[in-house]
């Protein structure tokens, strides 16, 4: 149930992200769309790691080692999503830097006016 919910939500965000990437003209908006897209993917990843009625895979008093199996969510997708988020941040940072540089050279933020290279 929760997996399905998260996946639908994630898929919706992915579509919104793609829509933004394909239709927004403002470079920064496109970058934001990519962030939305990433978020959607991350949601799906988290959703896939969910185990029915599972809690965080951390050992403490309530969750001793013996109870772990069957009661915690999958730690692998969590680990993956962590990496994915960082990578997403890195790419966003680079995109923003590009946006700054493009603005200084082309004096515009519209992607439609940045097309001197073609054919």
């Amino acid at each position: 149930m929760i997996t399905q919910l998260l996946i639908i939500l994630g898929a919706a965000l992915i579509l919104v992200g793609f829509w933004g990437v394909l239709t927004r003209k403002h470079i920064v908006k496109i970058i934001i769309s990519f962030s939305i897209l990433d978020t959607g993917i991350h949601l799906i990843m988290v959703g896939i790691g969910y185990i029915k009625d599972g809690s965080a895979p951390i050992i403490d008093q309530e969750m001793p080692v013996s109870r772990l199996a069957g009661n915690v969510v999958d730690p692998i997708p969590s680990a993956l999503v962590l990496t994915a988020i960082v990578i997403g941040v890195a790419v966003t940072a680079l995109m923003l830097s590009y946006a700054v540089q493009l603005y200084t050279f082309y004096k515009t933020v519209s992607i439609e006016q940045i097309k001197e290279l073609k054919w």
């Binding site: 997996t3 969910y50 185990i51 029915k52 730690p75 692998i76």
Partner: peptide, 14 residues
Amino acid sequence: FLNMEDAERLSELS
């Protein structure tokens, strides 16, 4: 995207 039910148990690896 559809029919993705919550997993009942962990994968072998996890």
